[in-house]
Amino acid sequence: MTSDKTNQDQKVDNAKAQMRKGMLEYCTLLILAKNEAYASQIIHLLKEAELIVVEGTLYPLLNRLKKENMLQYRWEESPQGPPRKYYEITPEGLKFLDHLDISWNSLAESIEKIKTVNPKNL
């Protein structure tokens, strides 16, 4: 039997996982909009921001974005290990990112609104 506490943890984990899923695409595009990067660099940044738990999450995402023409990449030899893929955002990706920015802002606003709502006005 699971105790209430672990149940609670599970729920939080679950909610967090759901939120991250939605955010990850946006954040990856944000990073790449600033500068081109190879997978490990993106992973490093995302890990620091606590947006991913395991590295594996990123690879399917990058590939999907590439297929949707949001990203493109070029190969570069690495001083150690296999050659690296440097990803950069495409014009299409930038346009998409603009939309995401707008959505994010309105979303953040909505949440702020709800958080600060005066209970008497309900």
Binding site: A17, K21, L24, E25, V54, G56, T57, P60, L61, R64
Partner: peptide, 17 residues
């Protein structure tokens, strides 16, 4: 495996979910 993650831990928002 711990760094990259087991397939089940890898979060995607693809159709499956």
């Amino acid at each position: 495996i711990q760094t990259i993650g087991e397939p089940e831990e890898i979060e995607t928002n693809q159709t499956k979910s």
